[in-house]
């Protein structure tokens, strides 16, 4: 589904990603862990099409297309979803308008008719129930005045509305309380099929109890320095990153 080959990227002249290689197949869950500043969000943002970064080298193929050539909106419509580490507040853009535009753009791309107002509200209600999302939140502007946890929940709510093929969850767990974490994880699992894949960026093994990864990768200074099964997450939880850092030296 996603194939990253020797991806090097810089921001403001500073090289952040120094040759990433990653293969993700349908049905898989990959966890990416790593110390602060190692480049996890940079990777996620580049995949989603953020233009602040300069790609120096490498190739990214998503569902057979050259991902790096596509605009962010086409990436999204093609089935790529990024749950932002820091979701932005957009005062004055009502959640409902935004979501409707988003869902209908995705439908248009697939050659489907836009949802009627009734259908849309029904879909929205179902997904809100699934994630125990406070109804009042969708009456507000996008993320405006949302708590940290509510913003994260809102990201997963959008994911549920769009049902992406590849979801990249950038620290979706941080800021969520224990109950919310469980609900969000259950939501992510409920959306899981053999057709789609998930990249979970996290610092905590806890989330991986709920969303069980097939692979765990450690990103350190812009490189994947270690990959393994879910047991690698336990090891990291126990020992921290030093042994990997040292091992690299």
């Amino acid at each position: 589904m996603l194939s990253i080959k020797n991806l090097r990227a810089s921001v403001e002249g500073k090289e952040i990603l120094k040759g990433i290689n990653l293969e993700i197949k349908a049905g898989e869950v990959h966890a990416i862990m790593g110390p602060n500043g190692s480049g996890k969000s940079t990777l996620a943002n580049i995949l989603a099409g953020k233009s602040d970064y300069e790609v120096l080298e490498g190739e990214v193929t998503f569902l057979g297309q050259n991902l790096l050539e596509l605009s962010p909106e086409i990436r999204s419509r093609s089935g790529l979803f990024l749950s932002f580490q820091y979701p932005v507040e957009i005062p004055g853009v009502p959640m409902v308008n935004f979501l409707k535009a988003s869902v209908n753009e995705h439908r248009k791309f697939k050659g489907l008719d836009p949802l009627t107002a009734g259908e849309f509200l029904k879909l929205m209600r179902a997904k809100k129930d699934m994630l125990h999302l406070d109804t009042e939140l969708t009456n507000r502007s996008v993320n405006e005045g949302f708590s940290g946890g509510e913003k994260k929940k809102n990201e997963i709510f959008q994911m549920a509305m769009l049902e992406p093929k590849l979801a990249i969850l950038d620290e979706t767990d941080s800021g969520l309380d224990i109950d919310a974490l469980r609900v969000v994880a259950e939501g992510v699992n409920a959306l899981k099929t053999t057709e789609n894949a998930t990249i979970v960026v996290t610092h905590y093994q806890r989330l991986l109890d709920y969303i069980v990864p097939d692979f765990v990768h450690v990103l350190y200074k812009g490189r994947i320095v270690k990959s393994g099964g879910k047991e690698l997450a336990f090891e990291l939880e126990e020992k921290g990153y030093d042994w990997i850092k040292n091992g690299e030296n």
């Binding site: 953020k50 233009s51 909106e73 990024l82 988003s102 995705h106």
Partner: peptide, 8 residues
């Protein structure tokens, strides 16, 4: 970017 990343 947020809006575009949602397909708009």
């Amino acid at each position: 970017f947020f809006l575009r990343a949602r397909g708009i």
